[in-house]
Simulated scan of single mutants.
Amino acid sequence: MVGLAGEWLTATANTNMFTYEIAPVFIIMEGLLIKKMHELIGWRENEADGIFSPGGTISNIYSVLAARYKFYPFVKTKGMAALPNIVLFTSEHSHYSFEKASAVLGIGTENVITVKCDERGKMIPSDLEEKIVKQKEMGHVPFYVNATAGTTVYGAFDPLAKIADICEKYGLWMHVDAAWGGGLLLSKKHQFKMNGIERADSVTWNPHKMMSVPLQCSAILFREKGLLQACNQFCAGYLFQPDKFYDVTYDTGDKTIQCGRHVDIFKLWLMWKAKGTCGFELQINKCLENADYVYKKLTCRENFELVFPGEPEHTNVCFWYIPPSLKGISRDKEWNDKLHKVPAKIKALMMEKGTVMVSYQPLKEKPNFFRIVLSNPASKKSDIDFLLDEIERLGHELEF
């Protein structure tokens, strides 16, 4: 309710956020929270820079844009034709926004090199290094690596420290897409999964995910102060006059690729004041406890099977329901084809009955599986029990 109150107030104020004179309090709030998020990442105080953006995809686009400008500042005036054939790297389980960024920025999706993952969905550092070397041998120019902290499907955390070593070795920009996993920085129990993030050049963090801030609330954070401004600044004379009577560094609108900018900061600021870091920590820990409960329940139920072995790292729990009609027969291609249809049939029945909804998807050669993502700390164990019982009840009589 606190976040919703913040959203209502900003809607009532109906102000923009490109200059200090238009939104002085909100501009200062944004700077304070960017500084706080930098501290949680592990960057020094004087490095704090960043901006709140319309979502994780735009934040990731900002990171590629700034990285390209860092290596090739003349791209701003001369365009992509003046650059060599640059390539970027991201894992095969990463978010699709890196392909989108490459399309939008003129880099091209064919220049997004996907890196293999292990069975838990984590990027394999040795494959990253091999592909960097191969691209260099082909005459291409690697410049950027994305590591994911909390992948979309498995909730996996890439080995950030090892990826940082490789980026340092080859002089590459390291971005961490922590849109989903960034909240774990607030948890003393789980923040170790983010070890190495302090070595990143940029980080995407979406408080509208694990911190439950009302949509939209996404931050793109940079370790190098001033880079975002240099990359995006165009000094529009009707907005960003350099001879104003106040410190014009507060006119943050010229850091962005937008003009008008929604006030996304107040609801986060208000929630942080109300809950405190400790309150967010308790909320996040509860969600991960619920995920652990789901995992343990699944290991004890006969007709359920986990997509990958071991406990989940985040709140994503992926599993199959195996109907009795598919038990005890050979698991060949025909069996996989039948299993592929199970989640869709069960979800359709769920929606017809109006009981629950849970997402499903395939992944590479794996047939459709259910994916529970627990981000609501109000969810109870009884809710989880009901969900699993409902899946079994609806799927028990399925015939193939």
Rank of each mutant, 00 (worst) to 15 (best):
A378D: 08
R261K: 08
S359M: 14
N316V: 03
R301T: 06
K338C: 09
C287L: 13
H314I: 01
L363S: 10
V317G: 08
K333A: 15
P362C: 09
C318A: 15
R371H: 11
L326I: 03
Q258P: 01
E289D: 10
K341I: 01
E305Y: 14
D264G: 12
K286A: 04
V373A: 05
N290D: 14
N376R: 01
W320R: 10
P312E: 01
K341Y: 05
E281Y: 07
V342S: 02
K364W: 15
E365P: 13
G260P: 07
I372K: 00
N285Y: 02
L270E: 01
V373Y: 12
T299M: 14
G279D: 13
V358P: 04
T277W: 09
K381E: 10
D292S: 15
L282F: 10
D337E: 11
K366Q: 14
F266G: 02
C287G: 15
M351I: 00
K353R: 07
E311K: 14
K267H: 13
A344W: 06
C318L: 11
L363Y: 13
L363N: 07
Y295Q: 07
L326W: 02
M357W: 14
G354Q: 05
N290Q: 13
E311I: 09
K341E: 06
R331S: 14
I284W: 06
C300L: 14
H340K: 04
G260N: 12
C259P: 07
H340Y: 08
K338V: 04
K275G: 11
N336W: 07
P324M: 06
C287W: 03
Y295I: 02
C300F: 13
K381A: 08
S325T: 02
K353H: 11
L326Q: 01
E281D: 15
R301Y: 09
I346F: 06
N376S: 12
I329S: 11
Y295F: 15
P324L: 00
Y360E: 12
F280C: 00
N368F: 02
K338D: 09
W272N: 02
F308N: 09
L282M: 06
N316L: 10
G310Y: 13
K267D: 04
I329T: 04
P362W: 05
W269Y: 07
Y360A: 10
M350P: 06
P309Y: 10
G279T: 01
P343F: 04
Y321I: 06
